[in-house]
Design a binder for these strands. Structure first.
Lengths: 345, 345
DNA sequence: CGATTAACTTAAAACGTTTTAAGTTATAAC
DNA sequence: GTTATAACTTAAAACGTTTTAAGTTAATCG
C-alpha cells in the first residue's frame, strides 16, 4: 500500500499527550480469558485516545503488529478448487465466521497436485498464518507432516490422513454409501455399481469401502464393481466410463463426488438412459443441475455448514491451546430421498 | 504462527560468515527494470548463502519484510458472494494468476451490504494490501472514494461507479441486452419483459437500459416492462414476481443476472410454463442447471477469464505505476444461442 | 607506485507495533 | 505520618527485515 502517510500510534500518543504504550493498551484493551480487561487504563484517558484514533481514521499496521506479537490473525485455507460449489460454500462460511472472530482468510486451490499444495503452504507460512485448514490431496502426507513438526496448528477437512496426529473434520463416508446402497436395493435395484475417482484419498477410499461392505451385507458381493475415472476432464472421462458399462445388466449407479454426480447425470442423459426406469442412482451432494431435472435425484447431503464451522473452531482452538491433543470429528451425512432410487414397474 | 524457532536472516549470515545485509541482497537479487541485477553480490558467496537458506528451509518473514518495505505482495478482492459461481470462477482465476505473479489474495464477500464493504476494506487495508479489486455494491461510492484518496490502487470489477476516477473492467451490458431482445424478437416473441434486481448498481442499470433501448428501436416501447425483485431469498421472490405476470400476454423474459436466471427457470418450471412454446427466455450467464434442462437455454456469456485477468493485470500495473491515469475496459459479451429464443409454431 | 575506480561488503537506522519491568502517583490502612 | 497497595503510566527493547551511506578490498590505469 502506498500510503500518503500512515497515522501511527506515535502520532496519536503525541496528540493525546501520553506514551505510545498507553495508546497500544487503550487500543487493545479487550476482555481476557479471566473476564478482566487486559490492561488498566484510566477510562477518561482511554476514551480520549480512542476518540483521537477515530478522528484520524487510524488503522493498525498489521505488519508491525504481527512482527512483534508473532500472531497474524490470518488463517490459510487450502482446498482442491474454490470454484467447485462444495468448496466455495465452505469457503464462504469460513470467511464469514473467521471475520466475526477477527481473522482473515487466505484461500488456495491445489487442483489435487502435491506440488501446488507445497507451494501454497510455503507461501502461507511465510505470510505468517496462525493456522491452516487443509483438504489434503494425494501424496501430501510428508508435506503436512513437516508443517506439524514446525508446530503450526492444522485441521484437515473432508479428507483424512490417518497416519498423522492431526485434527480432522470428516464425513462418515462409509455409512453414507452404505445407506445409498440400502436405498437403491430397497427401491428394487440389484446390480449397483459405483463411479469414483482414481485418486488415493481417504474419503474416496471410505466411500468405496462403504459401498462394498453394504453390498456384501446384502449378499450382493458378486456384482460389486467400482469404476474409476481420472481427475480432470470429467465429462469426457464419464462418457468413456459409461461406455464400458453394460446397461442391460447394471441397473444402478452411486457417484462418489459432486462433480462426478453432475457429470454422470449429464452423460446418462446423453446416452438416453432414463432415470429411474432404466437406471437408478444416488448422487453425492446436491446440485442446482438436479433441480431442473425431470426426475428428482436422491443424494447424500454433506453438512457443509458444520464442516466450515467445526474446522474453523478447531483451528482457532488449536492456535490458542497448542498443547491440546489432536481430535477427530466425524460428521453424519443426511440422505435426501428422491425418485432416482425407486424403480417403477 | 507458533514457530519452534524461526530461522532468520541473521542465522544464515552467521553461518555464512557474512552480514545480514548481504544475505538480504543475495535473497532478493532479482532482475530490475533496467535488466540488471539489483545488487552486486559475488556469485560464489551468493550461491553459498542460497545453499544455507535452502538447507534450513528458510522462509522469509513477510511481516518484517512488509513492515520495512511498505509492500505486502497481497491484494484484496471484494466480491458480492464468493459462493456464487460467477464470482467463484473469477476468484479462482485471480488466485491462480496472482500466485504466478507472486501475490497472495484476500477474498471478502459483501452480500451487497455497504457496511460489510466498509469493514472488509478497513480490514484489508490494515493488513496492508497493495491494491484492491472491488465489485462495488449500492451506496459504496463514498467508501471507495476515501480509499482512492489514500492513494490505494483500486480496480472496479463487473460494476462501475461513473463519478469516480478509477480503473474498471466491465461488460458491455447494454449491447448484451440489446442482443437478447433482438434474438427473442427474431425468434417470434414480441412482448418481452425483463426481470431484474431492485438494486442501484451500474450493470443492472445498463442491462435495463439496453433492453429498453432495443425495444424502442424495434417499435415495442409500449410493451416495455421491468420487474424488480429484491436481493435475498430469490426463489421466493421469483415466485411472487412471476405471479404478477399475465402469461397470456407476456411471451418472453430476459433475466438480468445468473441467480435470477436459474431461479427464473425453476419458477417457470414450477408454474408449468413450457419453454419455448409458452414462453421464451434469455439468461445471464450459463449454469450447470441448464445443461440438464430439456430445452437448451440461450444466454449471455460473460468472459469470466478476461474479467479476472484484466482486473489483476490492472491492479498490479497500478501498484507499480501509481501515477498512470485510470482507464476503463469494456468487455464484449458473447451470445450463446439456444432453443429458448425460438418460438416453434 | 600512487590514484582512481569498480566490486563487493557492512553497520546501523528504520519500519510500527507489543510487552516487560520499572516507574510514578494517589489512596487506603495502620 | 508512615507504609503498603492499587491504579495508572512510561521507557525501552524487541520482532526480522530492507536499504542507505559508508566502508573495505582488489584491480586497473597512467
Amino acid at each position: 500500500m502506498i500510503n500518503k502517510k500512515q497515522v501511527t500510534i506515535k502520532d496519536i500518543a503525541r496528540e493525546a499527550g501520553v506514551s505510545p504504550a498507553l495508546v497500544s493498551f487503550a487500543l487493545n484493551n479487550t476482555i481476557g480469558e479471566n473476564g478482566q480487561k487486559r490492561y488498566k487504563v484510566n477510562d477518561e484517558t482511554a476514551s480520549r485516545i480512542l476518540a483521537i484514533a477515530e478522528k484520524y481514521h487510524y488503522t493498525q499496521n498489521q505488519a508491525a503488529r504481527s512482527l512483534r506479537s508473532r500472531r497474524s490473525r490470518a488463517i490459510g485455507v487450502i482446498l482442491s478448487d474454490i470454484s467447485n460449489s462444495f468448496f466455495s460454500s465452505i469457503a464462504r462460511q469460513i470467511e464469514d465466521e473467521a471475520f466475526s472472530a477477527n481473522y482473515t482468510v487466505l484461500f488456495g486451490s491445489t487442483d489435487e497436485k502435491p506440488e501446488k499444495m507445497e507451494r501454497l503452504i510455503r507461501t502461507f507460512l511465510s505470510k505468517g498464518v496462525d493456522g491452516l485448514i487443509i483438504v489434503p490431496c494425494e501424496q501430501c502426507e510428508p508435506i503436512i507432516a513437516s508443517v506439524l513438526e514446525r508446530g503450526v496448528p492444522v485441521v484437515l477437512l473432508d479428507r483424512d490422513i490417518e497416519s498423522l496426529p492431526v485434527n480432522r473434520v470428516v464425513l462418515d463416508n462409509e455409512s453414507a454409501c452404505r445407506q445409498a446402497v440400502q436405498r437403491l436395493v430397497e427401491g428394487g435395484y440389484r446390480r449397483v455399481e459405483m463411479i469414483s475417482y482414481d485418486m488415493a484419498v481417504s474419503n474416496i477410499a471410505h466411500r468405496e469401502a462403504g459401498y462394498r461392505a453394504e453390498m456384501a451385507e446384502l449378499g450382493l458381493e458378486e456384482v460389486v464393481k467400482v469404476h474409476r475415472v481420472s481427475y480432470g476432464d470429467v465429462d469426457n472421462a464419464m462418457d468413456g466410463c459409461l461406455s464400458n458399462i453394460n446397461f442391460e445388466e447394471t441397473d444402478a449407479l452411486i457417484f462418489a463426488t459432486n462433480t462426478l454426480s453432475v457429470a454422470g447425470v449429464k452423460a446418462l442423459h446423453r446416452k438416453g438412459l432414463a432415470l429411474p426406469r432404466k437406471i437408478g442412482m444416488v448422487a453425492f451432494d446436491g446440485s442446482e443441475a438436479f433441480d431442473l431435472y425431470p426426475t428428482s435425484i436422491a443424494y447424500i447431503q454433506q453438512p457443509v455448514g458444520q464442516f466450515a464451522h467445526e474446522a474453523l473452531l478447531r483451528v482457532i482452538r488449536c492456535i490458542n491451546h497448542p498443547s491440546e491433543p489432536a481430535a477427530t470429528l466425524v460428521l453424519a451425512p443426511n440422505f435426501v430421498d428422491g425418485d432416482s432410487v425407486r424403480r417403477e414397474e
